[in-house]
């Protein structure tokens, strides 16, 4: 006797099969990801207990991998704080100290190389002109006659296109304005990279490498903790530092003091003084991304 086809059973079976296939594909593609990590929920839906457990596991994993005691925090945004940044175009000399201070602080991969900050050299005669800018300039000394420098990193848009297009909501804007990525939730589709008009998002095409003696063990879950292959990352205004009251690494290293940072909601902050008293601009204003990253002329 012919058995009637159990349609729903078969569908269930196929569904499970394809889930399994996708799952094992993802697992094999992403290097050493445990089943536990793979089944982990989006960071924003985790309970306190789940977060603590995940963080403890991560600390153990990183400590073992780099031979250094690691700390991972999930310090949330403080009330009454919205971060803003301002960069003095009349001072920047294009020395790229900020680029490498950032790499070090934020544990960016050295090879393949990831830089959150691109310093663009532009001709004074042309003004701000991305099409004719050069990121590979390499003279003996900077600044060069006739040029100025525009460092570009994530502009922490108030109206971010990157978070809008993410199909799995792995990236979002925090209450203090920092746009973050949950690396464990990111599927590596790179839609956000296509959407970002500032080239501010970077993909780990290979397993990131960080020399153990240079790795920064003080990390934030949504920021500078070591990443894995196949995920997107970006500048977070040094979330680990700024949520502890410190200036971002690029602000502190800049030898000409071109970089300014503070709380946009504090009328007495440096950043508010700049907005009130200096000539200020934002990049690609016509796109209505509404950056929290301003450029100004200090002279």
């Amino acid at each position: 006797m012919k058995k009637p086809v159990n349609y729903s059973g078969r569908r269930k079976f196929l569904k499970n099969l394809s889930l399994f296939a996708v799952g094992s594909l993802a697992l094999s593609g992403c290097g050493p990801v445990t089943m536990k990590e793979f089944l982990q929920k989006n960071f924003r839906t985790l309970s306190k207990k789940e977060k603590d457990e995940i963080i403890k596991d991560l600390e153990k994993k990183y400590t073992a991998k780099y031979g250094k005691e690691f700390h991972v925090t999930d310090e949330p945004a403080a009330d009454g704080v919205e971060f803003g940044y301002a960069l003095d175009l009349s001072r920047c000399v294009g020395c790229r100290r900020c680029v490498y201070a950032c790499v070090k602080e934020n544990n960016q991969s050295r090879d393949p190389q990831i830089h959150y900050i691109q310093v663009l050299q532009m001709e004074k005669e042309k003004g701000i002109d991305f099409a004719h800018s050069d990121v590979h300039y390499n003279p003996e000394l900077v600044p060069e006659e006739g040029y100025f420098y525009v460092p570009v990193q994530c502009q922490q848009c108030r109206n971010p296109q990157c978070t809008e297009v993410c199909p799995v909501k792995a990236t979002w804007q925090e209450p203090d304005g920092i746009v973050v990525v949950d690396y464990n939730w990111c599927i590596g589709c790179r839609y956000c990279m296509a959407a970002c008009p500032y080239g501010a998002r970077h993909f780990n095409w290979g397993e990131p490498t960080i020399p153990a003696d240079e790795v920064n063990p003080e990390t934030h879950y949504l920021g500078n903790r070591p990443r894995m292959k196949g995920v997107v990352e970006k500048c977070t205004f040094c979330i680990k530092r700024v949520r502890n009251g410190k200036y971002p690494a690029c602000v502190e290293i800049c030898p000409v003091g071109a970089r300014k940072f503070g709380n946009l909601l504090d009328p007495e902050s440096e950043i508010r003084y700049i907005l009130a008293n200096k000539r200020v601009l934002v990049l690609k204003q016509e796109l209505n991304t509404q950056p929290r990253f301003y450029y100004f002329f200090g002279v």
């Binding site: 294009g94 300039y137 390499n138 003996e140 900077v142 570009v152 970077h202």
Partner: peptide, 14 residues
Amino acid sequence: IKPEAPPFREDEEI
């Protein structure tokens, strides 16, 4: 002053 090394890759500049 002397600048730090330029980036290796071209694909991610704006």
